[in-house]
Amino acid sequence: MSEDVTVQTRQHKPLPLAGICVVEIGHSLAAPYAGMILGSLGAQVIKIENAGKGDYARDWGPPFIDGAAALFHAINHGKSSISMSLSNPEEATLLKGLIERRADVVLQNLRAGGVEKYGLGAAQLMADKPSLVYCNLGAFGTVGPLREKPGYDPLVQALGGLMSFMGGPGQPASRIPVSINDMGTGLWAAVGVLAALFRRQLTGAGELVDVSLYETALSWGGMQIADYLACGALPGRWGSGTAGIVPHQAFDCADATIMVAVGNDGLFRKLCAVLGVPALADDSRFITNGARVSNRVALIELLQEAFRAKPASYWLDTLDTAGIPCGPIQSIDQVVGHEQTQALDILRRTSDDAATVVGLPISFGGVRPDNIGRAPGLGEHNHLLDTTSQETL
């Protein structure tokens, strides 16, 4: 079989989750991000939104595309939308019926206790449908003193310790300007759901999956927590650097800043040779990574002086030639236009050609899932609540 025919055959294989139906009772980012992942893998995702304005993320702009924020398109493309008031018993009953008829998976990230009061909690739904995989995406977990506290990504970055070691030495605490706990929790939810679906193939039984923003934050800080428990020292703030590897940070050149990652003693020796300071490689203060970490400030000052002598382009070429990991610090426009980004074909247009979104960072048999439907209008698919509806997405 020729390569072209092989690729074409791969592209026409059903996606891994084809035939799976997901009901997403979520808003903002965590549950919708999990739904986006599962939908991009082939699942049918039915999004439940509040009657009226719908998901809060519809208004998280500008920029807006067709009346909804670009962020909403990025996270909700390819889904169906049902708008309803869960506090209305008749509408909640219709949703229960839809779940019982069609759903393999339920994702929910309402405030603690929210779904239970509407009769849509895990125990309530799984009693009627034992094969259901039900995933709670909470703020702080299902136990403990904070279990009912609402959570948002910046709050959890603070409470989870991440902000304590963000920023440079002596600088105020700062947060990671990406909702990593929301998105990370969505990713963990997808992992948990996939594991539960795999086991269901063997047992026929569903599963309750619980994930939370706080647990996700603890996992991101896992290395810092392990270090603290080992030695009792709190992590420092190293800006673009890292605690346990030196030099492994950004350096200012004559005209721009570049990132350099020297992860072992051999690379450090090469770096010293390239910079014209070979004696540093044999200096007892810097001869091992442990020594370099202990004498970080002195070493970085010496290396920084050398980097400032020439422009970034010179150092990038020279370091690349020497096999030393390095790269420019790119802005988003540069990332989008970069030939590596283009080669990966990860930027995809939605099916209505309204928005460009980042596709899944996964390929199967060399082919990236290409399930990039359009973002739904609010309540566009309310007819799916009809017990006679057989429509598929």
Rank of each mutant, 00 (worst) to 15 (best):
Y118K: 04
D265Y: 05
F364S: 07
D283P: 07
F251T: 15
L162K: 04
I46Q: 12
I346W: 02
H12I: 09
H27F: 04
G290R: 12
L15W: 06
V5W: 00
A103Q: 05
N264H: 07
I300G: 02
A354D: 06
Q342K: 14
V178W: 01
W238L: 15
R308P: 05
N382C: 13
G359M: 08
L302R: 15
E24N: 15
C253Y: 05
V23I: 14
G170Y: 02
G141T: 08
M166W: 00
L302M: 12
L120K: 05
I25W: 00
V133N: 01
E380N: 01
D210M: 01
R102T: 14
E215T: 06
V297G: 11
P328S: 12
L344M: 14
A51H: 11
T185F: 07
Q11A: 15
P16H: 06
M183A: 11
G337H: 03
L107N: 12
S131R: 09
D353N: 15
A34L: 06
Y314D: 05
L319E: 09
F307T: 13
C326Y: 00
A127C: 04
G222T: 11
G168V: 09
P247K: 12
S363G: 02
L86F: 00
N88K: 04
Q340D: 03
C231P: 00
K47W: 07
V262H: 01
K149I: 02
L110C: 08
L267D: 10
G141P: 11
R10Y: 09
D182N: 09
A190V: 03
I20K: 13
R292E: 07
D386F: 05
G161Y: 03
G204R: 06
V106L: 04
A281D: 11
R292K: 09
C272F: 03
L347M: 15
G52L: 03
L302H: 13
R102K: 15
L378A: 11
K79F: 02
D55E: 08
I180E: 02
S81H: 03
G42E: 00
K79P: 04
L280I: 10
T216I: 01
E100L: 13
K149V: 08
Y56D: 14
L146T: 11
S240Q: 08
A51T: 14
G206P: 10
P311I: 02
A68V: 03
A261H: 01
V22K: 08
A273C: 05
T392I: 12
G52K: 05
